[in-house]
Simulated scan of single mutants.
Amino acid sequence: MVLVTGATGILGRVILLELLNRGYQVRAAKRPSSDLDEVRESFSYYTDSPDEYLDKIEWIDADFDDIHSLEAAVTGVSSVYHCAGKVSFYPTDEKEIYSTNVTGTANLLYACENSSVQDFCFISSVAVLDGLNETGLMDEDSDFNPKLNHSHYAISKHLSEMEVWRASAEGLNTVILNPGIILGSGNWNASSGELFKTIEKYPYAMPGSTSYVDVRDVAEISVRLMEENIFGERFIVSSENRTYADIARRIRRRLGKPKPKVLSGTILDAGYFLQLIFGGLFPALRIMNRTNLQTVRSRSHVCNKKITEQLNWDFIPVNESLEFHLSNYISHKKNYNITDEYR
């Protein structure tokens, strides 16, 4: 039996499909409020028989603040894929970010102690990486530098990784994946699933760059690493480094929208001062803090050499990934007659 946490998220649901295709018995952890109809819809983007797959899954409600709930979740489980996490860059979400990402991960690992769990895959983020190698890229040795400014999300992922390394030192087989921005279908209103909706709505783009990867690559790589017993290591999972402007242009062109305007440093600086003055009155402005603005202005490039050599992996090109998931996004809007919500 394999447990997947965050199973209704943009990545967790595709890991479920990957595991089922390989013949595993799968238990999926979800919140009581999770919408399985929405999961069924997203399954339909990847398979012609979504109901058949959904019926094979043992769904359970898990409370990451309750160690007994987690102990029940891992009962009879040999492998865990820990995808559950809170992705947000709003300062108002700080408490939930640390509770979900750090405390939740620690509690799950404690539940795994003295259980049947032998292998543990943790989905982290490239946000924890600092420093460049001799080629000017971030790689798996680009350790988190606590002296630099980081978002609460990045800090929480770093602290979560420390919990995983602790468990590894105590004998649990662990592997960590550090994906870039995950391009996927479904979960359109949360996490990286919001990407298409946000870019469609706002005719602006940030001046920096980051790395992108298709959800199908992340899911299959996760399972391959566990199956091949590659533990005690971390792997950057990224297809390409691209500018925010390039991604926004391609998405908006496909959606029939005008080309986005790249925000200048002057405009971003003005946003920072506005949040200093009015952030107390308008909480939404607080996202324009110094750390977040530094992130969207930076041109961070990561190196995927380690995983491509380890698994002889060919990533799905970003343009191909965008076309696939944008087609699904457009289909979703058409099927649900969604118009004003996205304007």
Score class of each variant (00 low, 15 high):
273 F>L: 12
273 F>R: 10
238 S>R: 01
241 N>K: 08
240 E>H: 09
298 S>C: 08
267 I>F: 04
246 D>P: 04
293 L>M: 06
243 T>F: 10
230 I>V: 14
251 I>C: 03
260 P>F: 00
288 M>T: 12
291 T>K: 03
260 P>G: 04
267 I>T: 15
279 G>Q: 10
238 S>F: 05
270 A>F: 14
231 F>C: 02
257 K>G: 05
254 R>P: 06
292 N>P: 04
291 T>H: 02
267 I>K: 14
291 T>Y: 03
240 E>G: 07
281 L>D: 03
238 S>K: 00
277 I>L: 15
295 T>I: 14
264 S>R: 06
231 F>Y: 15
259 K>G: 04
237 V>R: 00
297 R>F: 02
241 N>S: 13
278 F>W: 08
274 L>T: 12
261 K>L: 14
298 S>K: 06
236 I>F: 06
286 R>K: 15
265 G>P: 00
259 K>N: 11
270 A>C: 10
237 V>I: 11
290 R>K: 14
234 R>E: 05
273 F>N: 09
279 G>R: 02
286 R>M: 12
267 I>N: 07
268 L>E: 05
244 Y>P: 00
249 R>H: 11
252 R>T: 08
229 N>F: 05
264 S>Q: 10
261 K>I: 14
280 G>P: 08
254 R>M: 13
267 I>V: 15
238 S>E: 11
261 K>A: 11
